[in-house]
Amino acid sequence: MNILITNDDGIHADGIRQLSTALKELGNIFIIAPDTERSACGHSITLHQPLRIKKENISKNIKAWSITGTPSDCVKIAIENILPQKPDLIVSGINNDANLGTDVIYSGTVSAAVEGALYDIPSLAISIYKKSEEIIYEGALFYSCKLVEYVINNKLNTPPILNINIPSLSKEDIQGIKITELGIRKYNNEYIMRKDPMGQSYYWLSGSIIDIKNSIESDVSAVETDFISVTPLQYNLTNYELINTLKDKKLSEICIR
């Protein structure tokens, strides 16, 4: 089993280092990750500047490279250029904060998993949900291994994209696993204006999350009650219900011939 690990926190982040060590027993581990943090980069790829690859010394029996690009770049160049063969599984994480609800649209962690699925590779995005600044990796590492084993041992109909959020707790304090839907996350956004040393204005995004009541079936509700959330995703964004509505309302007939 060849497992590719990436992230959006950068190759030097604790989460990816600890995850790679934990998964060593399950297969051959390859780390290909951004050289610096690329959080909230979404599914962007690098087009107008070169990508540079650097071999990294992570630990024994783990081959690793850093890339001057995004998480999606890492997956693409890993498969197309670096790895000797297509990996059997892609794991993105462990991200050092949650990727819940509508936040997955912005997430580089989740986008790396989506990119893997575009290559027909089962892909997991793993993030940790913390209620304080302290991160407890014990439960996340234990259940990351269990979930990877589950995907390896269960051949699903289509290569899955699983968005996984694990509470920052010991394995004994985690209440279980829930199969969830994406919840809703909204923020009071604020762009704070500052001045640089040259007197030019620049803006820094700040803000706070808005407390929204989510469905009990949502990923947000699951992690708030100390459960692991596992949300299956798909990259087909087509709104099939609206297709039928637009057909019923004869949208295509406004074209003049």
Rank of each mutant, 00 (worst) to 15 (best):
I105P: 00
T180Q: 12
I126V: 13
L83F: 00
S59K: 00
N81E: 01
G116Q: 10
E25K: 10
E134F: 14
S218T: 11
T21M: 11
G207K: 07
N99I: 05
V151W: 12
V148I: 09
P197R: 08
I174T: 10
K76C: 01
K86C: 06
G27W: 01
P167V: 11
L237Q: 01
L124G: 09
K63R: 02
I53E: 01
E241M: 13
I31G: 08
G199T: 07
N99C: 10
Y235D: 02
L182A: 15
V110K: 05
S201Q: 11
V91N: 11
C145G: 13
C145L: 13
D88E: 07
A40S: 13
N165E: 05
P84N: 04
D120F: 05
G176N: 11
D14T: 10
P197V: 07
T102K: 04
S59T: 10
N236S: 13
L205R: 09
E224K: 15
S66L: 09
S20N: 01
E37D: 07
G116N: 06
E115H: 01
S170H: 12
T6V: 06
N188V: 07
C74W: 04
S72P: 05
R194N: 06
H12G: 01
A22P: 13
I152M: 13
L205S: 04
D14S: 05
Y119K: 07
L251Q: 08
S59V: 02
I216S: 12
E241P: 13
Y240M: 03
W65I: 07
N28S: 08
I136G: 03
I136A: 08
I79F: 01
I62E: 02
G27H: 00
G183D: 01
I243F: 15
S206I: 02
L251C: 03
I82G: 00
I94A: 04
D219F: 14
K247A: 11
G199F: 12
L242C: 02
P197W: 04
T70I: 11
T180I: 08
N165R: 09
I105W: 08
L141K: 10
L182C: 14
N28Q: 09
I31M: 13
R185K: 13
I210K: 14
G27A: 04
N2A: 00
T102R: 03
I243V: 15
D97S: 15
S215E: 03
I243C: 15
V230A: 03
E134A: 13
N165L: 13
H43E: 11
G27I: 08
P167D: 06
V223H: 15
D226C: 10
N28P: 00
I161A: 03
F142R: 08
Y187R: 02
Y150F: 15
T180E: 14
L100N: 12
S218A: 06
I179L: 14
Q200L: 09
L23Y: 02
A13H: 05
T6N: 04
